[in-house]
C-alpha cells in the first residue's frame, strides 16, 4: 500500500538517468533508470531508489529488471512495475542461481 510521503531522492526517472552522466556502464542507462536504478558514482554500482538494493559487476547481456527481481524480489517498486507473476518467474526459473 503506497501512501503519499516526503519526496524520495532518485524517485523520478530523469533524476536516475542523470545520475549516470559521466559514468561508463555496460548497460544502457535508460534501461537501468527504468528498472529503478541510479548510479552510486562508483564503477558500475547501482542502487534501487525504493528498496535500496544494489547490483554491481554487470555483464552487457544482462537485463536490469531481471537482476532486480533476482536479488531483491521483495521490492515494492519492482512489484508495482512488473507484477508478482514476473517476480515468481525469475525466482523459480531453472537452473537455480
Amino acid at each position: 500500500m503506497q501512501h503519499s510521503s516526503p519526496r524520495v531522492p532518485m524517485e523520478s526517472f530523469e533524476e536516475r538517468l542523470n545520475s549516470f552522466s559521466g559514468i561508463q556502464h555496460p548497460i544502457h542507462r535508460e534501461r537501468l533508470a527504468r528498472a529503478g536504478f541510479y548510479s552510486t558514482g562508483t564503477g558500475d554500482r547501482v542502487l534501487c531508489f525504493r528498496c535500496g538494493g544494489g547490483v554491481k559487476d554487470w555483464q552487457p547481456e544482462e537485463d536490469p529488471w531481471e537482476e532486480h527481481a533476482k536479488h531483491y524480489p521483495g521490492c515494492s517498486f519492482l512489484l508495482a512495475e512488473k507484477g508478482q507473476e514476473y517476480i515468481n518467474s525469475i525466482q523459480l526459473q531453472d537452473p537455480p542461481r
Binding site: 524480489p73 521483495g74 507484477g83 508478482q84 507473476e85 517476480i87 515468481n88 525466482q91 523459480l92 537452473p95 537455480p96 542461481r97
Partner: peptide, 11 residues
C-alpha cells in the same frame, strides 16, 4: 497471486 522468494542454490 502467491509469491515465491527463492534463495536456494540447487534443486
Amino acid at each position: 497471486m502467491p509469491g515465491s522468494f527463492n534463495f536456494l542454490r540447487k534443486h
